[in-house]
Design a protein around this nucleic acid. Structure first.
Lengths: 337, 337
DNA sequence: TTTAGCACTCATCAAGGAGGAGTGCTAACA
DNA sequence: TGTTAGCACTCCTCCTTGATGAGTGCTAAA
């Protein structure tokens, strides 16, 4: 599609532009990268690259900047993975492991690490618990009208739900229900919760038991919603493309709209592995000058969440892709153990 | 200290400036506020107010803007509480109550409400659990080497901690320890945790019991750290004083530094009730052009956390003070119930 | 004590011009 | 046929300049 020289020039322009944020001229390329041809030749090639859509020109007497198509070609065909040093690699592992004090802290630390390593905004979707296996359920009577339900899932994820009833509860019956429910739910997942289980468990209990079980199941369903966190949002101020407060504002607004963000991330990360969504490939308006690098993470064999980085389209793709992949892998390992 | 006319002029200037963000000239005051004197008289008074430090002048041919001292006088002596309508009041109550699905959601909702009502950045310090009374402790054996400790505090606050041991655990012994610990800890607080309780509880148990209790107590201590959340950070982009990205950046950086922020809030809110810290009264550099309005909130009779709003010194003090006070009160009521 | 009048200051904005980076095109060359 | 030097041309950026106007401080009169 593109011959070797055009590729070299495209790569040189992108890497230069990513570094300087200034349009790149033919002279710069001829001087800095030893391509063995003069600036005039490069000029001709650049005109071709613009015609085929890989480059664009802000105005007639400026250099060229990469288009989304140019970045796409770079990401797919040209870039080489950023080599993190052994030391950095170990540091990442260590940071994630040492922060393990519950699931939330671990994923938050993962996001912090990504934002630190990439100097961009990191986002992380907390595990969708849909497919995680229930390990224990425990009901504790707090007083006559309230019960605390504690649910333990795979990977040490714990959910609590305080339940209040109109009816007075008898501690022994709550205990029996707790045992029965726990036994029945062990090994199932959120997906399995439904009328069948409800009927099965309540068979041996009275009216109050039925009400309680219903409240517990309902309460647990409420707790399953996906959460999304972001970290390092201030990093966008280091990017010249966000010098304009209006842009910064609209991006930050998008990030505060958790629902939007969640949809965005889910759309980006349909398949597993590291995905890159560049500029206008993004559907959301405020993101069309940004790129999104995401990677799924796992518990056991199941995809449970998404880790991502958001920056201007002019980002260090190779570094960001490597960093996101690496942290996601470390997180998966940690959660699986 | 200031005679009636000077007060009126100061109030007029502040209210005008808060609205327009433009320096206020003598003509504007003479025209808009019916003080019954000419602009020349007001000019003289303004010169006096500047000399005594209540006003300042960006440059010689501009109008006046309030100094921190001017705002302080306004907050202490001049402003009247913002009257929220009955409807707004009820809406606030409803929003907070409907979001009650665990403590974290409630305080997060409180912050969201404050940022919404004041168009500024809201911050909230999650309950310091130091003084909250333990109501239940429950240990559940997950497998031979791990136990889940669930601690229920006053106000329905729940803490979980997963504990792993080297030694194999016997389910019955864990149960006994759970019961003993729960009985002993009921009614105490984090402050009381210490060697005495440790010795008392472990008296009747063997080596494994001692290790387990130690791990549980340690684990719970780790969970007691204060958290701080912020909401509505994008609102600063609506303020002309943050048109300059450098300023916006340094403020957002301060907010991401949780430790700084916590110190800031604790310093601001030494006494109970609504407190206002204006501009340079703030020690932190990035905050010297901002004001901070805070209010403590309660569980029962005890102060447990702080709710606050951060905006430019040019903020609607009366509205912000009322909003923060109102939401904090609603939150206290909710948590106390 | 208040006010009208006036000279003065200085931020802001638009217009104009110099400088410079980078291009496209042409013609010569290997 | 591909490459290169040269050159006219474009247009952004920055600086200067001058006009405008808001707002002040001071003075003198009421």
């Amino acid at each position: 599609m593109l011959d070797e020289r055009k590729r070299s020039i495209l790569r040189a322009i992108i890497e230069n532009y990513v570094q300087t944020a200034e349009p790149v001229g033919s002279r710069t390329i001829a001087r800095k990268h030893n391509l063995g041809v003069s600036s005039a030749t490069i000029r001709n090639e650049m005109a071709d690259l613009e015609e085929t859509g890989y480059l664009q020109q802000p105005h007639v007497s400026a250099g060229r900047i990469p288009s989304d198509k140019g970045y796409r070609f770079y990401v797919d065909m040209l870039m080489e993975p950023h080599p993190f040093s052994r030391g950095e690699y170990i540091q990442i592992q260590k940071d994630i492991y040492s922060a393990y004090n519950g699931l939330e802290k671990a994923i938050y630390e993962a996001a912090r690490l990504v934002s630190l390593l990439t100097q961009s905004i990191a986002v992380v979707v907390a595990p969708s618990t849909d497919d995680l296996v229930f390990k224990h359920l425990h009901l504790v009577t707090l007083d006559k009208n309230s019960v605390l339900a504690t649910l333990v899932l795979q990977a040490g994820i714990v959910k609590n739900k305080l339940i209040r009833t109109e009816e007075e509860l008898v501690s022994e019956e709550v205990q029996n229900i707790s045992t029965a429910l726990s036994r029945r739910l062990k090994g199932t997942t959120y997906r399995d919760l439904g009328p069948t289980i409800f009927a099965e468990v309540t068979r041996d209990f009275g009216e109050i038991g039925r009400i309680l079980v219903e409240l517990v199941l309902q309460g647990l369903m409420e707790e399953k919603e996906e959460q999304v966190y972001s970290s390092g949002t201030v990093n966008i101020f280091n990017q010249p493309e966000f010098r304009d407060p209006e842009r910064a504002k609209s991006l930050l607004e998008t990030l505060e709209e958790k629902d939007h963000l969640l949809r965005l991330l889910n759309a980006a990360s349909k398949t597993s592995g590291v995905q890159v969504v560049i500029g206008h490939e993004n559907e959301h308006n405020a993101m069309q000058e940004c790129s999104l690098v995401t990677c799924t993470y796992y518990v056991g064999g199941d995809v449970v969440g998404i880790l991502g980085a958001i920056g201007p389209t002019r980002m260090q793709y190779s570094r960001v892709v490597s960093a996101v992949g690496l942290v996601a892998a470390s997180l998966s390992t940690l959660l699986t153990e």
